[in-house]
Write a protein that binds this DNA or RNA. Sequence first.
DNA 1: TATCTCACCGAAAACGTTTTCGAAAATTAC
DNA 2: GTAATTTTCGAAAACGTTTTCGGTGAGATA
Lengths: 339, 339
Amino acid sequence: MPSVTLKEIAETLGISIATVSKALKGYPDISESTKQRVQELAKSLNYHPNSFAQSLRTQQSNLIGLIIPEIVHHFFANIIQGVIDEAKKEGYLVIVLQSDESYIHEKEQLQLLLEKNVDGILISLSDKTVHYKHVKEVIDAGMPVVLYDKISKSLDCSKIIIDDRGAAKDATTHLILRGCQKIAHISGPLKPQTTIDRYLGYKDALKEHGISFQKELVYTSENLSYEDGYALGEQILIDHPDVDGIFSFTDLVATGALTKIREMGIKIPDQVSIMGFSNWFLARITTPTLSTVDQPGYRMGQEAFKQLCKEIKMTKDQEIILPEIIKIPTKIVQRQSTR
Amino acid sequence: MPSVTLKEIAETLGISIATVSKALKGYPDISESTKQRVQELAKSLNYHPNSFAQSLRTQQSNLIGLIIPEIVHHFFANIIQGVIDEAKKEGYLVIVLQSDESYIHEKEQLQLLLEKNVDGILISLSDKTVHYKHVKEVIDAGMPVVLYDKISKSLDCSKIIIDDRGAAKDATTHLILRGCQKIAHISGPLKPQTTIDRYLGYKDALKEHGISFQKELVYTSENLSYEDGYALGEQILIDHPDVDGIFSFTDLVATGALTKIREMGIKIPDQVSIMGFSNWFLARITTPTLSTVDQPGYRMGQEAFKQLCKEIKMTKDQEIILPEIIKIPTKIVQRQSTR
DNA sequence: TATCTCACCGAAAACGTTTTCGAAAATTAC
DNA sequence: GTAATTTTCGAAAACGTTTTCGGTGAGATA
C-alpha cells in the first residue's frame, strides 16, 4: 500500500531525487550507468509515479470528460467506445457523464469536469439546451471543448457531425428511386439541429425529384419512442392510405411504425417502404429488417477525440485554436423494408 | 485561465493561507467574521480548489474506475448509468474502460486505474479471463475492488450478482407451468459462471417438475449472436419437431431463434414458446414480443457503487473489509412469446 | 600551472492544498 | 491586577513530482 517514491529510490541508491527523476525520464545529462541502476531498481520495486504529484506539477491530468445525453442508446454507446479506444492510444482516460437530456445536469457536469481539471471536454448538447452560456464559459476559461453530434452553430469551437441534411436527402432519394411516389416523414421536436436538418433533407430530395412537398405528410413524434412510431404508423395510413413510403428521423420510431403497419396487414415493402435513420442494432432484427442510414458512432467518437487531443496540445503550446467542423460520411444500409 | 488560489485570497485579505483554507472548510477555530469575508471573496473570485493539490494532499482522487466487457450492450449500458448516477451522489466521477472481453485489456486497464490512483474499481470479468492473479494483485495492493455480474468465486472481494441459477429455474418453470413438455435450452460457451448457472437452473426446473433431462436438447451458441440463434432455432426443430419450448440463455440468441421459427411458419407461442434472458431493449420489439428474465442492470450498477463506496470509506478508516455477496432480484417479464 | 570544456549530478523552488501545533490576542475568573 | 482560560490565527511541514540552474571534478588545452 505505501507506494514507493522517488525519494526512496534515491536514498537506497545514495543519489538525489532529481537524478532519479531524470534517469527515469531519460534526460541526457545522466550517465548511462546511473540510468541503468535507477531503472532497474525502479522496476524491481514496481515504482509508478504518483499521478497526483505529476498532475500538480505539470497541470495536466491526462483525463478528458465525455458528456453523453443518454448512454443506453446504441449510437451513443458506440461513440463512448470510439472515444475511449482512441483516447487510450494517447494515454488518456475518459470520465463519462450522462446529461440525461437535461440542461441542469449538463451545466452541473461541465462544472464538475472543470473542477476536476480534465484536459478537455467532449460534449453532445442535450435536447433541452437552448442557450449556451454555460458551455461558452467553459470554452472561455481556456478549456478545450469539442462538440459532437448535437451541436450549436452559435458556439465557437470544433464540431464533429454527420451531414444530417445530406444523409436525409439520400435516404428520401433512396425511397424515390425505388418507386415511392407519396412519402411521409416522421420528424421529432424541432429542437436539436439534427432533427431540423433531417426534415430539410427530406424536403430537398422531394424538390430535386419534382415531387411537391405536402405539409400534412409530416408527422411529429414527441417522445422519440417505439410507441410513438406504433401510433403514427397507423395514423399516417389512415390519413393518407396512398402513402407508399415513410422516412422516419430515427430508427426506433421507424420500428414502431413498421410493426404496426405490418400488423395492419399492409405489405412492406411492396405497399409501403420504410426508411429509418441511425442504423441501430435493432434495425437488423425487425421483421422485415429495416433499411436505414448508418450513422457511424464509433468513428465519430474517434474523430471527436482526435480533434480534442489536437486542441489540448495546441492549448499547451499556447497556440491559437481555430475551430474545425468535421463531417463524418454516412451511408445508406438497404435491408428488407425498402424494395 | 490562471485560476485563483488560496494564496491570492490570503494576500488580498491580508491573512494566512492556513486561515483561508480553514475558513472555507468551516473549521471551528476561525471567527465567523473572517469566515464570511473569506467565503465572500472566494465566491466573487470564483475560487475552486485545485483538485490535483487536494488529491496529492489527501491521497484520494474521488475517482473510481469501471471496467465493462462491452459498452454497446443494453445490460452493461444500464450498469454504467447506475454506477455514474449513484457515484455522483457521493461526489465521485467515473472513469469507464472497456475490456472488450479480452484478458490482456482487462489486465492493462486494471494497471492503468491503479496508476491513476482511483479510489476504487468496479469490474466485470471478461469471458476469456480464466485466472485472476491480475485482479488479486490489485486487491492485495489495498485497492477496494467490487466485482459485478461476471465474477469469480475464487476472488476474495465483494460481488454484486443476480441469482442466475434461480432466475433460469424460474424462466424454465414459467415454460413448464404454461404447458410446455419438451423444452430445449440454448446455452453458451461454459466459461462464465453465469452461463453455467443458467444451464443448471434449467436442469433444476426440469427435475423439480419430474421432466427428465435430455442432453440432446441442449444446444450451444458459440458467438452469442443473432445469427447463431437463427441457425439454432431451425436446428432444434429439425432435430426435435416435438419441442414446444425453448429457453435461451440470452435475449439476442432467443431473438434469432424466434425469428427463424416464425419464418418457418411455426406458431409462437401456440406451437413453440420461447423464453429469453436479460430483458434487452430488443425483447420489446420482436414479433411476437419476447418473454424474458429482467436483469436489472441499473440497479446492479447502483448497488455495486454503494458497496464500493462503503469499502473505500472503510479502507480510509483502516477498518477490515469483509466481502459481501449481494444478490439482486430478477423477475419474469411475460410477453407474447409464451402463452 | 592556469584556464576552459564538458559530462554528470544535486539543491532548491515550485505546483496548491491540508493540518498540526504553538503563539498571540482576547476574554474570563479570582 | 494577575492568572487562567478561551478564541483566533499563522508558521511550517508534508504530499511527490519536475525542472532550472549552478556546482563539481576530470580531462583537455594553452
